[in-house]
Design a protein around this nucleic acid. Structure first.
Length: 582
DNA sequence: AGGGCGAGCCAC
DNA sequence: AAACGTGGCTCGCCCT
């Protein structure tokens, strides 16, 4: 595979000749070895480059390779194409330690995920991907070795092997990407990876003091409700108390159900939706209150503060670029995509002194995708009118003037607008709006009488998913389904996915494209993306450029939306604020 | 002790 | 009988 042995680069002259070789290549492999996983506390030890004939291992401890201008140039130019496995990791390290914005990426990690199309039990480590696509078994034993001391022969060999494999691996993956029609979506994903790296490095600021105050308030409410409930249960169910002390764990659904049943409250399970029906009992109402604060305390309590990084004073969550099979991001440690949408919490997520947040989200993006894709003339018109969508829907469903739409009618229309994209049936709607199934059936019928094109599109999408065992988003992103045809409950589930995945996934396509475009347009300013929540972006910037930044955000997001939605307007709602509030 | 899993609930 | 999509976090509980 490699014509020449590994060149260990330990001085500026060797580095210059290394770049001489690399500059003229169309495609090169790139990998780094670091002393740890955290860009703010770890150092880059090695940078490895591969070409079809050469292999360079640059020892960043031997000389100041990371300060080399040519290195930054090479990384920042779109050519040569840089092949990396999980480019986000290396991009974070290289941005932090070489001050370089990586561009021109082919990511074998993301490529593997796109090709696997959400298949279960398929790993995407470099080892797994090389094994699957090349039949090559990599030895990863040195991966977590100590990269801060003298280099061993094994370490240099390991570093070489990893970067050597990237060129042949890309060739195989490119073939599969072409066969599967994934060229466009791969471009979006690859371009997005360095943007995600920058977003993670930037992190998001949380007001520690404000958050702590919120925690204390919640802790007091929690203790009060807990004591009161334990007492209630103890006096109502004497056999549950031991020496006058109640023996119930309020956080155990099994114990709570048992206790409620003993009190003659016949709950089946203790979900909020179940307890709701019995909220006339004081103890149940109190339990629901307890649940709310308990959730706030555990999921959104002090643990959030433990994520504040000692070096940056900010939170650097982990964004998983293809987190859902639909192509949506997921986020963890902590998940800043699911901080409660209540002022007490969102006020704590803010811009530091002298800076502002631009908060922007797509208006009804999924319904617009559905309208555009189905070409339903009535739904398209509804969007073109610029009126309140749910009200228009109700007016069309019930054949009444806009102004005569009642609150109930609007909320039924709203439930349908959202629910049908998830493949909801009459049963589900009945549950949602607390009506009879017959009434729900009538409403679904009315909805589809108004939106014939939507009905047809959803039906076709469901049937297509079952027949061809796959769905695609507008960018070509592919999701394959494995199921047992003879099992009705399984096919029903696939039909629901067939309706939802193309829409949810196209929304993800749009948001990712918007991030790429926005990152490009913010380059050179001190504004940067700090969060992405499915159809929403949060950007932090100096207050002096807030208005200009808002314009950039709106322009990038609108442009991205138009790439996939052509026949109706794409509307982006933006606001400038000190906190993550709407 | 720690992994796996379900229940329940937060986000869009 | 049920079944409305995608995730992550924390808990209890059961397992090894």
């Amino acid at each position: 595979m490699s014509g020449r042995p590994t060149t260990l680069v330990t001085d500026p002259a060797a580095l210059a000749s290394c770049f001489e070789t690399l500059r003229n290549q169309p495609v090169i492999g790139l990998d780094t070895e670091t002393t740890g996983l955290d860009p703010f506390t770890s150092r880059v030890r090695l940078i490895q480059f591969s070409t079809p004939n050469d292999l360079f291992v640059i020892d960043c401890f031997a000389f100041e390779a990371l300060r080399d201008r040519e290195l930054a140039d090479l990384l920042e130019q779109p050519r040569p194409i840089k092949i990396l496995h999980n480019a986000k990791f290396d991009a974070r390290m290289l941005e932090r330690h070489a001050g370089a914005r990586l561009q021109g990426v082919f990511d074998t990690f993301l490529a593997s995920q796109l090709i696997a199309t959400g298949a279960h039990g398929v790993g995407h480590s470099l080892r797994a991907v090389a094994d699957r696509h090349l039949g090559v078994t990599l030895d990863k034993r040195q991966q977590a070795s100590d990269w801060s001391g003298a280099l061993s022969r094994e370490q240099i060999d390991y570093a070489s092997e990893d970067v050597r494999i990237l060129l042949p691996l890309r060739s195989k993956l490119v073939e599969r990407i072409r066969e599967l029609g994934l060229v466009d979506v791969a471009k979006i994903e690859f371009d997005c990876a360095p943007v995600v790296a920058r977003m993670e490095n930037a992190g998001i600021y949380i007001d520690r003091d404000k958050w702590e105050v919120q925690c204390e308030t919640t802790e007091r409410a929690h203790a009060l409700l807990r004591d009161r409930l334990v007492e209630d249960f103890a006096s109502a169910v004497p056999q549950m108390s031991l020496f006058g002390k109640a023996e119930i764990n309020l956080d155990s659904p099994a114990q709570v159900q048992d206790a409620l049943n003993r009190l003659g409250i016949p709950v089946e399970g203790t979900r909020a939706s179940e307890l709701q029906h019995y909220s006339k009992h004081e103890i149940v109402a109190r339990l629901l209150e307890y649940r709310t604060v308990a959730k706030q305390l555990t999921s959104y309590g002090r643990s959030m503060l433990e994520h504040i990084h000692p070096v940056t004073g900010r939170i650097h969550p982990h964004f998983i670029q293809i987190g859902a099979t639909s192509g949506r991001f997921s986020c963890m440690d902590p998940s800043v995509q699911q901080i409660p949408n209540a002022p007490e919490y969102r006020d704590c997520v803010r811009a530091p002194e002298g800076r502002m947040l631009v908060v922007a989200d797509y208006s009804q993006i999924e319904l617009r995708i559905l309208a555009d894709w189905s070409q339903d003339t009535v739904l398209m018109k509804a969007f073109q009118s610029g009126e309140d969508l749910h009200r228009v829907t109700a007016s069309q469903m019930f054949g009444i003037p806009l102004d005569d739409v009642s609150k109930t009618e609007r909320s039924a229309a709203k439930a349908l607008n959202f629910g049908l994209m998830y493949g909801m049936g009459a049963q589900g709607l009945a549950m949602r709006i607390e009506s009879t199934v017959q009434e729900a059936e009538r409403l679904v019928h009315k909805y589809f009488s108004a939106y014939r094109g939507v009905e047809r599109w959803l039906r076709d999408a469901g049937e297509h998913a079952i027949r061809d065992r796959e769905s695609r988003t507008r960018s070509g992103r592919l999701v394959r389904y494995e199921f047992d045809e003879s099992d009705r409950s399984q096919t029903a589930g696939i039909a629901r996915l067939g309706k939802n995945v193309p829409i949810q996934g196209t929304s993800a396509d749009i948001t990712k494209l918007a991030m790429v475009e926005l990152d490009r347009s913010l380059h050179g300013t001190d504004a940067f993306i700090v969060n992405t929540i499915h159809d929403e972006l949060v950007v932090e910037c100096d207050e002096s450029i807030a208005d200009a930044t808002r314009d950039s955000v709106e322009r990038a997001m609108t442009w991205a939306g138009r790439q996939f939605i052509s026949s109706i307007p794409v509307v982006v709602e933006t606001m400038v604020s000190q906190a993550w509030n709407k």
